[in-house]
Amino acid sequence: MTRIDAKFAELRKAGRKAFVTYVMAGDPDYERSLEVVRGLPGAGVDIIELGLPFTDPMADGGTIQLAGQRALEAGQTLARTLELAHAFREQDDTTPIVLMGYYNPIYSRGVERFLAEAKEAGIDGLIVVDLPPEEDDELCIPAQKAGLNFIRLATPTTDDKRLPKVLTNTSGFVYYVSITGITGSAAAEAGDVGPEVARIKAATDLPVIVGFGIRTPEAAERIASVADGAVVGSAIVDRIGKGEPTEKVLEFVAGLAEGAHRG
């Protein structure tokens, strides 16, 4: 049982939806990023998605791309990101960390070496945007073997015929991308998302978490009410990008968490 599985068991018991946040590792620099990440559980965050900076984030909007650029300019690397996770883990042994990013930095590191290091750093799962099920041999299968969850994205273009393929080899949870588009785009409507989540849940026992386009406590509540949880990324990263102090960022996160937990 990974920390992710344990977290969902705990949430189910408490009858609560999951609140998941995305922040970019090393944005705007290592220290401030670690400070935010360390504060997330206290602000009500159940699962942390830690963004792995990449120069060419093709599935992300401007907010996440700029965050990646800030991090890279401040000297963030894959190794430093694992170091950050490790530093977080020293103080918190229960909040799951999911590393989210693109394949090339991992491929460049070498898959085996990366998996060993990620496990060592206390990473629990991976979301790698540009690795669809067709490329499962690359990282998904080795990651599962190494004891890490491999969390797949399902999207509005994932039709019933394709869904089983997406769910095979997925573990931890399913991340439903609520819109066709990039991160930080227009919001999804709970009315549209609900039936899609139900469609996925009919095909898997895994929790289904919904992300993309959620920016307010109210939206988090609406989306969480029709799923097992909600993800907020760009709205938080925006504030970090504007240079808001950590406590203000965490205050905003706490508001979102309350919304999601009401859902």
Binding site: P132, E134, R152, L153, T157, V166
Partner: peptide, 12 residues
């Protein structure tokens, strides 16, 4: 080569 794209594009 290969098909290293996000799930949204895969069906396309």
């Amino acid at each position: 080569g290969g098909r290293f794209v996000s799930e949204t594009l895969m069906p396309l």
